[in-house]
């Protein structure tokens, strides 16, 4: 197997697949592709194809795994047997267990697990076709699937990798760059720029590392835009009906025990029980305030913290083979 290209970057500064060094591969996202799951997402990123299903929060068995004060997140990263040329042996491997662990930890800071004590949130990420960067692709998809499942999160998580080929840093490695490159640095971060996952394979100097994190930040910002776009457009298909007006009156006002209740015993105290105070409302005449929409601009400086604050699993096996 010696299909190592002679040059990764041509004289015009373009890479093997014609991208700039700081350009990510095209990404397409479909939401809600699995009807049985509570939330799901199918994501294509270059030649990567990833399907993520989210279940939960649901009851956790065995009970000994339950955490009394928060929900447990279970993340299962798995490569389909047919996802690469050479058949992947089914079942958990050293590599997939490791990726599952670090990916789970990438989500733990953003998911509001404390709201669901004793429950579990299951995330299943299946790689259908692999072409370098599947863990980042899976994280990007999982982030959307979690949102689709209605799970409270402090923000979305975006992930992407920076690598080094021909002594140059490049964003979002493809297969040959990953296999024969000098380094690979996948990073996941929240929209505030807080890093939740860092791994590294190969060598980078300190200078390069800082620069790589900067590049990654920009890549993640672009990915976050794509994620947001996808979520906002989920209901764009039925634009005809997308003019909500008196929608979702959060009136828990009538919790409705209405059989044929006679007027006099209409349970008045039920009406105002609990939520109604802040949630009752009238016929949907609400004033939209011009809200600032873009917060993602605020990718704050994280380079410094990134290095010392976060878990760095150096020398871990990044290769997709």
């Amino acid at each position: 197997m010696n299909d190592k290209p002679e040059k990764f970057i041509d004289e015009n500064g373009l890479r093997l697949d014609g991208r700039q060094i700081n350009e990510i591969r095209p990404m397409t996202i479909k939401i809600g592709v699995l009807s049985r799951a509570d939330g799901s997402c199918y994501l294509e990123w270059g030649n990567n194809k990833v399907l993520v299903a989210v279940y939960g929060p649901r009851e956790l068995h065995p009970r000994r795994l339950q955490k009394s004060d928060s929900a447990l997140i279970r993340y299962r990263y798995n490569m389909a047997a047919f996802s690469v040329e050479e058949r992947v042996r089914p079942g958990p491997s050293r590599r997939s267990i490791e990726i599952s662990k670090v990916s789970r930890e990438a989500f733990e800071p953003v998911v509001m697990t404390q709201l669901y004590p004793g429950a579990v949130i299951d995330v299943f990420a299946e790689v259908l076709q692999a072409d370098a960067g599947t863990r980042t692709a899976a994280i990007n998809a999982a982030s959307i699937a979690l949102a689709d499942a209605g799970i409270p999160m402090k923000g979305l998580v975006a992930a992407c990798a920076v690598g080094k080929v021909d002594d140059k840093l490049v964003l979002d490695l493809n297969k040959p760059e990953d296999n024969y490159g000098q380094a690979d640095l996948p990073i996941a971060m929240t929209q505030d720029g807080d890093i939740t996952l860092v791994q590294m394979d190969g060598d980078l100097s300190q200078e390069e590392f800082k620069q790589a994190v900067e590049m990654c930040k920009e890549g993640c910002r672009q990915i976050l835009e794509i994620q947001k776009e996808a979520l906002k457009n989920k209901f764009a298909d039925d634009t005809a009906v997308n003019i909500p007006d008196d929608i979702d009156e959060v009136t828990y006002v009538e919790a409705i025990v209405e059989f044929d209740i006679e007027e006099d015993e209409y349970p008045e105290e039920d009406d105002i029980s609990g939520e109604s105070e802040d949630e009752d409302e009238d016929t949907g005449s609400l004033d939209e305030e011009g809200e600032p929409e873009d917060i993602e601009e605020e990718f704050i400086d994280i380079v410094e913290e990134a290095a010392d604050e976060e878990e760095i699993t150096e020398g871990s096996d990044i290769r997709e083979q």
């Binding site: 999160m153 402090k154 923000g155 917060i295």
Partner: peptide, 14 residues
């Protein structure tokens, strides 16, 4: 009248 679709982490108010 349209209500805005919001995402986790979106700024809603100062």
């Amino acid at each position: 009248m349209e209500r805005e679709i919001v995402l986790p982490g979106q700024l809603l108010s100062e």
